[in-house]
């Protein structure tokens, strides 16, 4: 594969990526989708490299996805158990970063509950850092896997009407998707009650709808977001049932979208809160399982791309 225009050492967000870089990451991921469907999935592209998954905020699926991605490329993958480690004994983020750095990992996959925490950590280490979600800010691999899913289903990744629905305010998935889809010239709508929208959202280059049916009119893609339990009753929305009534996706509301609309969700789903259970399982429309599959492929592409940018990289499969 030719050298892709990817000047970054780390993947901290899609906001920093050029559209060409995004497309080439997706091309590369496409190849891995096919590979992952073979019986023998393991390659030795990252053989000898060490990947550490550092999840300060627990997440089963993202962590597993990164672990599988690293292992399928032959890296030695280690999960750092944050809960039982010294981090819960008051060690600071930077001290942890320095300690890990001294063990000379090549790839560090980090999730943290604070916006900007991964950027901070990336300044202090020599290895490549992948942001697996920081606070409300970015979740780049989620946006990339969503893009890959859309491109494979729709055959293109531009001039689509994409609706993002739900808790936009607290969502890094929403932000990353808005940047990525915006860069590739799609029409983005956000659908949410005003209490769950960030200030100045109109100036993000998106159309804002408080009425879900209006917002879904003519959409090619609907992305649902998870509503966190603690935000459901009274604080941001009056109740679960009122939320589902106004902003839950069901067949009736979805009928306003295009006939070949696809429904996405980053998981885990709250059935009956943001999405109707039957709809979630409708294989003609729901691509939720496919998103999970694309996730592994996209993360393989990201890990490989960053590994190639390592200063001590000596080519695929070279023994370190």
């Amino acid at each position: 594969m030719t050298d892709i225009p990817f000047p970054q050492r780390h993947l901290l967000g899609v906001e920093d990526l050029a559209p060409e870089a995004i497309l080439q990451l997706l091309d590369r991921a496409d190849g891995y989708v096919e590979m992952n469907r073979e019986a023998r999935k393991k390659r030795d592209i990252l053989k000898g490299l060490t990947q550490i998954n550092l999840f300060f905020e627990s997440s089963t699926r993202t962590q597993m996805s990164f672990e599988l991605a690293g292992k399928r490329l032959g890296a030695d993958v280690m999960n750092m158990p944050v809960k039982s480690s010294s981090l819960s004994k008051g060690e600071t983020l930077i001290d942890t970063a320095m300690t890990l750095n001294a063990m000379r990992p090549d790839l560090l996959v980090v999730r943290h509950a604070d916006s900007g925490a991964v950027n901070l950590l990336a300044q202090k280490v020599n290895c490549a850092v992948v942001n697996a979600g920081d606070g409300r800010r970015e979740h780049p691999t989620q946006a990339l896997l969503d893009a890959l899913t859309i491109r494979r289903r729709k055959g293109r990744l531009h001039r689509l009407n994409v609706a993002i629905c739900g808790d936009i305010l607290h969502s890094r998935v929403a932000r990353s998707n808005m940047w990525l889809l915006g860069k590739l010239e799609n029409r983005i709508r956000v659908i949410a009650p005003p209490t769950l929208l960030p200030t100045g959202i109109e100036r993000f280059g998106v159309e804002v709808f408080e009425d879900m049916e209006q917002g879904l009119e003519g959409c090619d893609v609907v992305m649902m977001l998870r509503l966190q339990l603690e935000r459901m009753s009274g604080a941001f929305v009056p109740s679960v049932r009122e939320y589902f009534h106004r902003y839950g996706l069901n067949a009736e509301k979805l009928a306003r979208a295009k006939e070949d609309v696809i429904v996405m969700h980053p998981g885990p789903m709250n059935r009956g809160v943001e999405i109707d259970s039957e709809l979630a399982d409708d294989i003609n429309r729901s691509v939720i399982q496919e998103q999970v599959e694309m996730g592994v492929a996209v993360r393989m592409a990201v890990l490989e791309t960053l590994a190639e940018r390592l200063p001590n990289w000596r080519g695929a499969g070279a023994l370190a």
């Binding site: 906001e15 960030p198 200030t199």
Partner: peptide, 15 residues
């Protein structure tokens, strides 16, 4: 401060 910029950074904001 609640603003476009802080919204992009994803920081907790106050108006």
């Amino acid at each position: 401060t609640e603003s476009l910029f802080a919204g992009k950074l994803g920081l907790p904001e106050a108006p």
